[in-house]
Nucleic acid binder design. Structure first.
Length: 291
DNA sequence: ACCGCACCCTGAGCGC
DNA sequence: TGCGCTCAGGGTGCGG
């Protein structure tokens, strides 16, 4: 689900519900590989810490805490972050029990897919982290400790230059599609925006990275940023089930030109949009516009 | 160093 | 209705 634009939309809506607030208690589901930091440790360490800032690096959200530690969150494929209380949270077809009537709380808010609940000293709202497939991650970094996950990331896609992509493409025999999905090249591009940006810049997904010119890299990065900025402005892409922390869905899916449009006509030339596997991912493109 | 692949997990949609 | 199969917007770790 979530690529850079969805994570940024999440960050913007979550920020006012976290900034300056002191965590009072932490509830978690049972330990699983969702927890890079074991849940007992989160329950022990987080209470008493205020949230200093909420930043984003690629698809990662990072809450800076008062003692200098950082809570790193990744949404994986199906992760959702919610603020309780606002509207009653749409979770697939259900609503989180207790999201609307907090007083009826049992000990744990949310459903069986809710893995983390942060409660704050000043009351509602709480922050819920739900993730059906558990490909998401939560990790607490002690003050001054770095994370190999974050260190591996390339320049954030929103601020990258054509030259950044060009440098990352040298001596890479992989397809340009694979290069865009590589988080150490540009951070934040996923399958949807890779396909959309390649369409917009008229580049075939299978083109070898080492054959890219500076000029083409420039066009691709401009296209990546154009589709991402546009998506952020429209609340992200809710193609299957992205919900922002306030329960709202985005509308970027209505603007997509190729992703999940196989068999439909290209908006520009009318040619049928094709889908094939590139870099082990479903890849959508217009065979006439992109070559 | 780089590359492709298996794998982590659950749910939806499809054909039979 | 139900079964089994495939696929899904991500990332890591492994062997070649």
């Amino acid at each position: 689900m979530p690529e850079l634009p969805e994570v940024e939309v999440t960050r913007r809506l979550l920020e006012p519900g976290m900034l300056g607030r002191t965590i009072e208690s932490v509830e978690t589901s049972a330990d699983s590989y969702f927890f890079v930091t074991p849940p007992e440790r989160l329950r022990l360490r987080l209470p008493g810490l205020a949230v200093r800032d909420l930043t984003r690096q690629g698809k990662y959200l990072i809450a800076g805490l008062a003692d200098g530690s950082r809570l790193v969150l990744h949404l994986g494929m199906s992760g959702q972050l919610f603020l309780t209380g606002t509207v009653g949270i749409p979770l697939m077809k259900r609503t989180v029990p207790g999201a609307i009537v907090p007083s009826q709380q049992p000990s744990f808010i949310g459903d069986s897919h809710t893995h983390l609940c942060l409660s704050f000293a000043d009351g509602e709202p709480r922050v819920l982290f739900r993730d059906v497939r558990k490909f998401g991650k939560v990790q607490l970094l002690d003050p001054g400790i770095s994370s190999s996950r974050l260190e591996r990331l390339g320049v954030d896609a929103l601020i990258a230059s054509g030259e950044d992509l060009f440098r990352a493409s040298r001596r890479r025999r992989v397809s340009v599609k694979a290069l865009l999905l590589d988080q150490s090249a540009l951070a934040g591009v996923g399958n949807i925006y890779a396909d959309e940006a390649l369409f917009l810049s008229r580049v075939t997904p299978t083109l070898r990275a080492l054959r890219l010119t500076r000029d083409k890299c420039q066009r691709i990065v401009e296209a990546v940023q154009a589709v991402m900025q546009r998506s952020i402005a429209s609340g992200g892409a809710s193609i299957s089930d992205f919900y922002a922390p306030d329960g709202q869905q985005g509308s970027y899916q209505r603007e997509r030109r190729v992703y999940a449009r196989e068999g439909q006509p290209c908006w520009d030339c009318g040619t049928t949009i094709k889908k094939r596997m590139v870099a082990q991912r479903g890849t959508h493109y217009c065979p006439k516009c992109q070559r």
